[in-house]
Design a protein around this nucleic acid. Sequence first.
DNA 1: CGTCTAATTGAAGCTGATCAACGGCAGTGG
DNA 2: CCACTGCCGTTGATCAGCTTCAATTAGACG
Lengths: 211, 211
Amino acid sequence: MPLFSQLTESEQATIESIVHRHHYQAGETIFAAGDPMDALMIVASGQVKVFQLAANGKEQLLYLLTTGDFDGETALFSQANHNSFAQALMPTQICQINRPEFQRLMQKYPTISLNLLNEFGKRLTDLEKRTTKTATTSVESRLADYLVETAAQFESQNFKLPLKKKDLATYLGTTPETISRKLAELEQRGIITQTGSKQIQINDESALELL
Amino acid sequence: MPLFSQLTESEQATIESIVHRHHYQAGETIFAAGDPMDALMIVASGQVKVFQLAANGKEQLLYLLTTGDFDGETALFSQANHNSFAQALMPTQICQINRPEFQRLMQKYPTISLNLLNEFGKRLTDLEKRTTKTATTSVESRLADYLVETAAQFESQNFKLPLKKKDLATYLGTTPETISRKLAELEQRGIITQTGSKQIQINDESALELL
DNA sequence: CGTCTAATTGAAGCTGATCAACGGCAGTGG
DNA sequence: CCACTGCCGTTGATCAGCTTCAATTAGACG
C-alpha cells in the first residue's frame, strides 16, 4: 500500500479496520460512469482496467491497476460522479475507504496527502506524455514505445503482454487490427519475435527505440 | 490566487514577501524541457502556453495558463526536470516560489495542499477527457466541442479565440490547415460565422453539440 | 510602408479505420 | 472427454479522413 507506506504497523492496522472489502470476478464492473463517487478504491490483488466510453461507443483505456494501485481520489474532497468505468480483468480483491473516513485519515496523517500529491503528479506527467505521443506520433512508434516500457517493467526482453490486444489497442488509441498488423510487421523485420500468444521477445531494442 | 484563497490577508502578504517576480515579453521562453524544476510558477498577469515537443519536432499544447494559474508543482516534492516548455504569449508577470519555501508554506497552511490536490484532480479529469476525445473522435467533433466550451467560458456565443489557430491545432491534436478547413465547413453549413480574424459567432449551438 | 508570420486554399498521398470472413483458443456443458 | 459456443485475434480489401507540400493571401507590428 504505497499510500500508507510511511505509517507504522499499528497505524496501518487501524486502517485495516476502516476498510471495506469486496471481491469481484473477471469481467465484473466495479463502478460505472455516472455512479456517485464516495470512496477511495485500492486494489488489494488482481487487475482492474479503468476506461472511458466516448459518445460513439469507442473505448479508451486510461489506467491498468494492479496490486497496490488506487483510484477514485479525484472526488475525495468534492462530491462528484465517476466519469470512467472500472472493470475487473481477473478475480480481484478491492478495499474501499469512504470519503469521511479518508478525510479523517488525511488530517491525522498529513503524510498521506503528500503521497497522494506525488501520485497525482506521476499520473499527470504520464498522461501528458501519452497525450503528446498519441497526438503527434504514428501507431508504430507508440507501439514500439509501449514494448520498450513494458520490457523495462518486467526487466526482461521476453515477457507476456499484461493485456488483451483488444485492450492494448484502446490504450494506444488504435484498433486491434492495426496492432496485429504492426506486430506482424515488427516480427518480419526481425525486431521482435512472437512466441506464444501475447508472449513477446524483443530482439533489437535499439531499433524499437528509434521508431 | 486560488492556491492561497483561504488564507487571511496578512498571511497572503507574507507570501508576497517570499515571492520572486519576473517579467517576460511575448514570445519569451519561461522554462524549457530539461531545465531543473525548483520553483512553483504562478501567472500574475498575461498568458502562458505550456507544451511538449515530440521527437519528430511536433508540438503538443498541454495547458494555456492565464492570471492565477500555476505550474511546476509536479516536482515540488522530489527533485526533477521539466518535461515541457513554457512560453509567454503576451507580456506576462510571473511569481515564483522556491521549493523549500513552498514546502514550509504547505506545512504551515495545510489548506494549500488541499487546494493543490483539488487542482491536480481537475487537471487529471480534464486530461483524461481530452485523451479520450483525441483518440476516439474526429477532428470535427473535437473542434465543435472546443467551440462550445470556449463559448461557455466567455458566457457568450460571440467570442474571440484566445489562441492562434496554429496553437489551437496542436491543442486539438491536428494541423492548422485542417482547422481552417473545418471552420470554413462549419460556416458554410451555417452553424457558425467567422466575423473578424479569430472572432467566432455561434449560430446553432445544438448542432455543434451533437457532432 | 515593408517585412514576417499566420492563415487559407488546392492537390496528392498515406496511414489507419472499417467491414467482412476465417481460424484458434478457452470455457461450458453434456 | 468431446463437442459446442463465444470471443479473440488474424488477414485481406476497401475507403476516408487527415497530413503534407506548395503557393498565395491576409494580417500584425515595428
